[in-house]
Design a protein around this nucleic acid. Structure first.
Length: 514
RNA sequence: GCGGUCGUAGUCUAGUCUGGUCAGGACCCCGGCUUCCCAAGCCGGGUACUCGGGUUCAAAUCCCGGCGACCGCACCA
């Protein structure tokens, strides 16, 4: 017996067949860790970005920049990534297995995290030999220690000593350009700066399709604050929002218990230290709800000291539950303090401080940063998985209407008596009004509805015999299959309101009983 | 990177053990006919043995290697 298909299998199958996403470079056998978005997938991703901007960026007037993917070595050395994005490994001479050298030293040498971090490769090897650590699997000796670098390395220009890296996050692009951004935004805090763009991480073994990629789209938001004035003036907007937490103290337990509390409570109890961090987490939860992930399939997990990235003072990961992989990180919310700006200021010698007036004149200070960061590809996949459902024999993608890659289908009820021509007219009328449409006259009307359902098109517009008489059409709702009748000349405006979430389906016309 | 399993059309799959009569099915897709509302029907059409090498009279089938996928280990800063 084959195990029943999980949702990942179904969604990727559908993704390939209908053009959402598939593994890249398939004709050359494929390369792990890369996917290509097809016609529908790229549209979905674009719509998701638009929604993100509208929901997460615009209300706070967060500005966006676009900076290069290739970064010179100096930048990522200053940021600490060159140091932190690699792991010392040793290989067993006998069985060839590779081990994290620092983990071996911690386990057998009782060394702490901070101790092992300070060792260079030679020192690592020395310690391993001094302690007589052998391969835990077969007892063999270890050969030379080497670093596995998880950033993509390249050279810039013709000089091979000019090392460049593919950026592992978009955040550094913001920190490096902070001076100009801050100046052009008239030196005012708080200032939110976002970047949506590609990031590269040379994962050892990616697998896991769209949730673990070597090249992916990251949304990094750096929210710069005065460390002496970190109050969030709009925290009241979200203070009653409840979040589900997996707290650090509960993580080690057998059955990690979920703690549910409001933002207000979390702040009062000191679970979340920063108001802005709390604010962004609440918004992240709300966003995921809008993307179709119910409350009980989301949680925030508190990062332990050693789990946090090198730049983070406090951090929570937002996780959603995926059928195949269980709890999966879709966003990270970190308090980066002044870590990055201070490092770049130090390394570059350029002043990256802000100025404020005080009673005794004024002072310069390095702004602090609250950072929400999202993996857009994971969000796209999450949306697809949660939108997928089966109605009878049919696959239906109940995508939120504002994310659907196509707004509506236009069908002639039958392909004769001038209905094709009329449907064509309707198609062009709506296309001129800016809608993205699916045209289908193949098979029967039922088959066309079914095809459109699987692709996730929210509305079906059918041109029938009555259309020829009174210029009305039938609209059919993808999810409920209910139908309404509407005058053609009112349709563009109605659809516009529908996709702006101003009216629901029943507001599109008068109900038809069949 | 290691170990295990695996790789047949757009998708899913039969066949591989026991080499030949094997490339079959279903869905899907396209064109036409039909069709007054949910994958109806009829006709026609479409595409595949992961790649390379070897064994053999003969390879989807056996052997070696590459690539990829899945699961476990490790990794996910």
């Amino acid at each position: 017996m084959k195990p029943p298909k999980d949702k990942y299998e179904i969604v990727s199958e559908m993704g390939k067949r209908r053009g959402y996403f598939w593994p890249s470079y398939e004709i050359y056998g494929g390369v792990g860790g890369f996917i290509t978005y097809g016609p529908l997938g790229s549209a979905l991703k674009r719509n998701l970005e638009t929604k993100f901007r509208k929901f997460y960026l615009q209300p706070l007037a967060i500005v966006e920049i676009e900076s290069p993917v290739i970064m010179p070595g100096t930048v990522l050395e200053a940021s600490g990534h060159v140091e932190n994005f690699k792991e010392p490994t040793v290989g067993c001479v006998k069985c060839q297995r590779k081990f994290r050298a620092d983990h071996l030293l911690q386990e057998f040498g009782k060394m702490t995290d901070t101790q092992t971090e300070k060792l260079d490769l030679d020192a690592v090897m020395e310690e391993i030999q001094k302690l007589g650590i052998k391969c835990p699997d077969c007892g063999g000796d270890f050969n030379k220690a080497e670093q596995f670098m998880t950033m993509f390395t390249t050279t810039i220009g013709p000089y091979s000593d000019s090392i460049g890296y593919g950026r592992p996050e978009a955040a550094q692009g913001i920190f490096v350009e902070f001076k100009r951004i801050f100046e052009s935004m008239r030196n005012r805090l708080p200032l939110g700066v976002a970047q949506i763009g590609q990031a590269l991480r040379n994962e050892i073994s990616p697998r896991q399709g769209p949730v673990r990629l070597r090249e992916f789209t990251i949304i990094d938001i750096e929210f710069f604050l005065d460390p002496e004035d970190k109050k969030c003036l709009i925290i009241n907007e979200v203070e009653n929002e409840t979040l589900r937490f997996l707290l650090a103290e509960n993580k080690q337990k057998e059955n990690p218990e979920i703690t549910t509390m409001t933002i207000k409570e979390a702040l009062t109890k000191g679970i979340i230290q920063e108001e802005w961090l709390a604010y962004f987490m609440a918004k992240a939860k709300q966003l995921l709800i809008l993307l179709g992930v119910p409350e009980d399939k989301q949680r925030f997990i508190e990062k332990l000291d050693y789990e946090r990235a090198h730049y983070s003072k406090q951090g929570f990961d937002q996780e959603v539950y995926l059928d195949r992989w269980g709890w999966t990180e879709v966003s990270g919310h970190n308090y980066r303090t002044d870590f990055d700006l201070a490092r770049h200021m130090n390394a570059s010698g350029v002043d990256l401080t802000a100025f404020k007036e005080t009673e005794d004149g004024g002072k310069r200070f390095v702004p602090h940063v609250i950072e929400p960061s999202f993996g857009l590809d994971r969000l796209v996949y999450t949306v697809l998985e949660y939108a997928y459902n089966k109605q009878g024999k049919r696959n239906v993608l109940s995508l939120p209407r504002d994310l659907a890659p196509m707004h509506a289908s236009v069908f002639p009820l039958v392909n004769k008596d001038g209905l094709m021509e009329k449907a064509d007219e309707v198609y062009h009328m709506l296309a001129d009004s800016g809608f993205v449409l699916n045209w289908d006259h193949s098979g029967s009307i039922g088959r066309r509805y079914a095809r459109a359902d699987e692709v996730g098109i929210p509305i079906g517009i059918t041109v029938d015999y009555q259309t020829l008489e009174d210029n009305t059409v039938t609209l059919r709702d993808r999810t409920s299959w209910t139908q309404v009748r509407t005058k053609l000349d009112e349709l563009p405006e109605l659809l516009c309101n529908y996709f702006a979430n101003k009216i629901d389906f029943n507001g599109l016309g008068t109900l038809i009983e069949r």
